[in-house]
């Protein structure tokens, strides 16, 4: 009932909101992952150094706390150095598909008509394409490579962004404040990007974080399948493939990169949910 929210001297914005413990931990993990991505190669420049004499050491070996793989590379060093390749791609994919989604989704939702039809059918088409299969085929044809994969995933991830932004824009553009803006004869770009877009930010950002997690998994899967990064690059997905053969001699070679992928993806999701919640409360009534 509308009556209730006005009762009493309602505190309009509660500023002291405590960080949930789960989100705090997730933020900590992500901070570590980012540090590893930035400084990993500086700390362990020789992470990919092969030493056949120290091959397949179990965890706890001297000088190799997590053991080594078949080629004698240190599992811990590889995991730290691999953060960059494993994280940069997914972040670029998520940001790229978000930008594509914001522009195309806003145009489709606000302009409607033939432009909407065109963009919507295009997203339908892309959604029908299986992401991993397409990536394998394209990498096969184009010869593979990190940046080809990035570009491809941006395009393949964009439909969800486009659809979400379009739905949000459709919902907002029926509101009276948009008609009020039209009565002021504001330009369509101003209405779209100054009035509507800030009101769909929470959707966009939540989806951005979801996409980072999805892309992280997709990238690792591609590297695991051998079409992502080139062999010899420090990368969690690659490490997973290489460690598979010695799973019983040194389990850490498989489980460490696998765990990192899962943990980082979960943390990104947790933080994404939390940010989305916070953003959607900005400008809202206190209930």
């Amino acid at each position: 009932m509308s009556d209730i929210r006005v009762i009493g001297p309602a505190p309009v914005r509660r500023r002291r909101r405590r960080l949930p413990i789960g989100v705090g931990v997730a933020l900590g993990v992500l901070a570590l992952a980012v540090l590893a991505a930035v400084f990993g190669k500086l700390i362990f420049p020789d992470a990919m150094h092969q030493d056949i004499l120290a091959a397949t050491l179990p965890p706890g070996s001297e000088g190799h706390p997590l053991g080594t793989d078949e080629l004698g590379r240190d599992v811990l060093q590889m995991a730290v150095a691999g953060a960059a390749s494993s994280l940069v791609g997914p972040v670029i994919v998520a940001v790229g598909s978000m930008l594509l989604g914001v522009v195309m989704g806003t145009l489709a939702g606000y302009e409607k008509g033939w432009l909407d039809t065109l963009i919507s059918r295009w997203t339908d088409l892309l959604l029908a394409v299986p992401v991993l299969l397409a990536a394998i085929v394209v990498s096969g044809v184009m010869g593979g490579g990190y940046w080809v994969t990035v570009a491809l995933l941006i395009v393949l991830f964009s439909p969800s962004d486009i659809r979400i932004v379009r739905a949000g824009v459709l919902e907002q553009s029926a509101r009276p404040y948009i008609e009020a803006a039209q009565m002021l004869s504001l330009s369509r770009w101003r209405v779209m990007f100054r009035h509507i877009l800030p009101n769909v930010t929470s959707l966009v950002v939540t989806n951005l974080m979801l996409n980072v997690a999805f892309a992280l998994v997709a990238f690792s899967s591609l590297s695991f399948l051998g079409v992502g990064v080139a062999p010899g690059t420090a990368d969690w997905g690659r490490q997973l493939t290489d460690g598979r053969a010695i799973m019983f001699q040194n389990p850490a070679a498989v489980f460490v990169p696998a765990l990192l992928i899962v943990v980082v993806a979960v943390c990104v999701n947790l933080v994404g949910d939390w940010i989305g919640q916070r953003l959607s409360q900005v400008g809202e009534e206190v209930r």
């Binding site: 509101r175 009276p176 404040y177 008609e179 009020a180 803006a181 009565m183 009035h195 800030p198 009101n199 900005v282 400008g283 809202e284 009534e285």
Partner: peptide, 13 residues
């Protein structure tokens, strides 16, 4: 024009 619903006729952001 001034609309009916003062809760949705101003941009909340």
């Amino acid at each position: 024009i001034v609309f009916q619903d003062p809760y949705s006729s101003l941009n909340p952001m």
